[in-house]
């Protein structure tokens, strides 16, 4: 069961704004999907290794060789808003990570 609060929390994490009608609908739909998904809880998987990659690759690197970057003009080609060669965004109220 996915509650309205769960949906609100998750929407906030994902930076999605939901109207109240949407909140109801998503709670209902996500609950239905999660119910189905909960099927995997019935398996006892204590001794099973997780798979995050099907390739068995390891240690794939590139050499530390610089390439040509794109021009500033191209970097800003799709910018919704730009100023002084930089991307412009509304004011930042929350602190970042580092």
């Amino acid at each position: 069961m996915v509650s309205d609060d769960d949906v609100r929390y998750v929407a906030r994490l994902a930076r999605l704004k939901l109207k109240s009608a949407e909140l109801d609908r998503y709670s209902r739909q996500l609950s239905g999907i999660i119910d189905h998904i909960n099927k995997i809880a019935e398996l006892d998987l204590k001794d099973v290794e997780p798979t995050s990659h099907v390739t068995r690759l390891e240690n794939v690197f590139r050499a530390d060789t610089p390439w040509s970057s794109v021009s500033q003009e191209k970097a800003l080609l799709n910018a919704p808003e730009a100023e002084a060669g930089a991307f412009k965004v509304p004011q930042i109220l929350e602190a970042g990570e580092q």
Partner: peptide, 13 residues
């Protein structure tokens, strides 16, 4: 857009 968070939320919604 009041701030960056509102920009994110409205843009993505």
């Amino acid at each position: 857009l009041a701030d960056i968070t509102e920009m994110y939320e409205l843009t993505r919604s």
